[in-house]
């Protein structure tokens, strides 16, 4: 798959193809950030799950910009289409919406600042790392093109062990689910 615009221009104007692509990229970033904020800040669980779904959609856009459309589609199909829906399903089935009580006031007052500072530290560290590292530009190879044929070939040749391990994990999950479902029947 070819990049949308290649080679990238240094300073594109706003009303060119590069400019439009840049705006779309910024929109996907905005989706990730707003989705993440909704997921963290909102009081109602279903709204938080919706925020999570928005965040995953934005992430799929970022993957697309990283020239791996297959991972982007899988992100949409699995995380937005299945994982968030299962979470929302679990919330709907589990308990009715309840007021968030004061609980232990001492701890709950401490949780916010602590979380914010840890998140801020991580963000600062990653930013410094990203800015300080001398990034190398590798030439685009067939293995790195991210198209599905290459993904399939690497999964069945050089990464076949990973493939087998994942299938064993999935098989165990299926058998476990069957055992639990069967036990509840009598």
């Amino acid at each position: 798959m070819q990049p949308l615009v290649w080679p990238p221009m240094a300073n594109p104007t706003l009303f060119s193809l590069e400019g439009a692509v840049g705006i779309i990229f910024l929109l996907t970033i905005a989706l990730v950030v707003t989705g993440g904020l909704i997921a963290v800040v909102s009081q109602r669980l279903v709204r938080a799950v919706s925020g999570l779904a928005i965040c995953f959609t934005g992430l799929a856009g970022v993957y697309y910009f990283l020239l791996s459309p297959f991972v982007a589609m899988m992100q949409l199909l699995i995380y937005v289409g299945a994982v968030s829906i299962l979470i929302a399903f679990g919330i709907m089935m589990a308990t009715p919406e309840q007021e968030i009580g004061p609980g232990n006031a001492w701890i709950s007052r401490l949780v916010g600042p602590l979380g914010a500072s840890v998140g801020g530290l991580f963000f600062a560290a990653l930013t410094i790392l990203g800015l300080k590292t001398p990034w190398q530009v590798f030439p685009r190879t067939a293995e790195a093109s991210g198209d599905i044929e290459q993904v399939g070939k690497t999964l069945l040749t050089s990464h076949s062990m990973v493939f087998e391990l994942i299938s064993i994990v999935l098989l165990m999950a299926i058998i476990g689910a069957l055992v639990i479902a069967r036990r509840g029947r009598n």
Binding site: P69, F70, M73, L76, L77
Partner: peptide, 18 residues
């Protein structure tokens, strides 16, 4: 005519469920 258009259709179909 994108590659993976079949996958795209199924990804979008799962969005409709939301």
């Amino acid at each position: 005519a994108m590659e993976l258009s079949v996958l795209l259709l199924f990804a979008l179909a799962s969005l409709a469920m939301i």
